[in-house]
Every structure is written in C-alpha cells, then in structure tokens.
Nucleic acid binder design. Structure first.
Length: 283
DNA sequence: ATGGCTCGCCCAGCGAGA
C-alpha cells in the first residue's frame, strides 16, 4: 500500500476526546481547538447522523472532518489539519476475507454501531475507537463488549501487517490497572474494571505489542480522563482513566509526551470526559 | 444501601451512558 506522506517537521500532536454529543459540545470543541491547534483530534460519542455533522465550523478552523455516526448513539470522527488518506470505517472493511467466517460475521454485526474509524496522517495509521460501555458485569451488553474486543484483535493484526506505525486512541471504557481508578473498592463487580474486561483489552491490544503512551511518562495514580456526572464525581475527584493512546513499538519510541487536559471538564455543561493528548516526534 | 446527572428522542418520560 502506498500513502501520500505529508512531511511534518515539528512533533505531531493527536488528541482523543469523548464529547458526549458533538452538537451540544460544538462551541467547547471549537474553543479548545482554537487554544490547542493540534494536528489531529479524534472524537467519540458524536451522536449525530453523517448528514447533520457540523463540518463548516471545523473547516473554518482549518480542520477537515471525517466521521461516521448514527442517530442518538455512538459516532466517531477524525478532525485533521493535515491530509488524511486510506480512511475506513468499521471492522469489516479492514478485515475483508482475512479473518475466519465467524469473525467476519461478527464484524459485520458490530459495524451496525458506529464505533470505529481510521485514516493515515503523516505516515501514521490513526485508529479511533469507541469501545462499548457494557452496562453491567454479566449483562448482555457486557458480553457484547467482550466479543467486540475479540474482533478488535484481528482488526489490529491486519493493520499491523500493513504498517508498523499505528497510533490507536479512543474511549476504551476500561481502566487497565487499579491506579487508573480513584478507588479499588468493588472493582471486580464494577463495569470498566472487571478482570475479564482488562484481559480482553490486554489480549486485543497489549499482546500485539501496543503500549499505553500515558505510562511511558507518568507512573503515579490519580490521573483521570472521566468523572461521573452524578455524585459530584469531578468535584470530589472520583475519576477513572479510561481514555487511552496505545502505540505500536516503532511509535512508542517516538512518543515525547502524553498529557490529560482537565480544563474542559471544569466548564459549564461539560462532557463527562476530557481530552488526552500525545505528542510524536517523527523527525 | 441507593441514587445522584446528562444526552437525544418528533416534546415526555425513558433508555443509555459509565
């Protein structure tokens, strides 16, 4: 596969942000991009059909939006200052017939929910995911989440066969370790921290060689990307780190920063998530 | 111990989120 490689001399910044409705959060996202003119912003939970995605405000700021959405639920987008090539949405288009028949069928079924978009920017294959929430441990949606992650693995394997430079980000709806949660009380029975979810994420992502960019730079707990609207979760700093950047080995070496910007979570009518930013030195 | 909020949905409580 050949890519138009756009050469960027400065480090490339990529952010991930679950905005919980792009229409409700539009002004906040525009304001944030104005103050943080990064190259690529990956959004989750846009909650809008493609015909209604607000493209013009981003184009006016110099960002080309690429998106796939549905009514009311889910929806992902990649906003980029740089040219994006090889755009693809969903699991099935990438998997093609490389996977077994059962996996292909699952992929098509999962693609009804708009949770996956990818494109190549500056020679980097960017993958933006909105992993299913899972509702409650043991529920039907929980099984859906685990099965979805089992298809993510062959999806990523296929991409790794084409490029060693993969930057995977999104709302994973899983805290990998206890230090990623404000408390470890009841974690085994809690959605987002059960051992089966963690194992599914390790199997789909980490076992392929991807590593959590945030932990390259910060070992302490107490760093979160999501706080529950209820119970005054943000005011009491009862948070979870569930929004991640995972980098393939070649890119992990190139990472020079990974930070969480808490400022948008302090605004009036915020998303319950806040942006997480990585910086890659590709020179 | 339970439920706290916020979103979109053809406008009113309800499913979904995490």
């Amino acid at each position: 596969m050949t890519h138009d490689v756009f050469c960027l001399s400065k480090p490339m910044k990529i952010a991930t942000w679950n905005v919980n409705s792009i229409r409700t959060r539009l002004e906040q996202v525009i304001q944030w991009l104005t103050g943080n003119p990064i190259e690529v912003l990956c959004l989750q939970e846009t909650k809008v059909i493609d015909a209604d995605f607000p493209q013009a405000p981003f184009q006016a700021l110099g960002y080309q939006p690429h998106f796939v959405g549905q009514k009311s639920y889910n929806g992902v987008a990649i906003l980029s200052q740089l040219p994006v090539t090889d755009i693809s949405t969903g699991f099935a288009a990438i998997l093609g017939d490389s996977a077994d028949v059962e996996t292909q069928a699952l992929a098509q079924q999962f693609d009804e929910q708009k949770r996956v978009i990818t494109g190549v920017v500056n020679g980097v294959r960017i993958v933006n995911l909105y992993v299913p929430n899972g509702s409650e441990v043991g529920s039907e949606k929980y099984q859906y989440k685990l099965a979805w992650l089992s298809v993510l693995r062959p999806y990523l394997e296929k991409l790794l066969g084409e490029s060693g430079q993969i930057s995977l980000c999104g709302d994973f709806n899983i805290a990998l370790e206890n230090r990623d949660i404000y408390t470890d009380q009841g974690r085994e029975t809690h959605i987002m921290s059960s051992e089966a979810e963690r194992q599914a994420l390790r199997s789909a992502v980490l076992d392929l060689g991807f590593a959590d960019a945030f932990r390259k730079f910060t070992q302490a707990g107490g760093h979160f990307s999501w706080w529950d609207y209820r119970t005054g979760g943000f005011q009491r700093n009862r948070g979870w780190r569930i929004d991640h950047h995972y980098l393939s080995p070649a890119l992990y070496e190139r990472a020079i920063a990974c930070t969480i910007d808490i400022a948008p979570r302090r605004l009036e009518k915020p998303s319950d998530h806040t942006p997480v930013i990585i910086e890659l030195d590709l020179a």
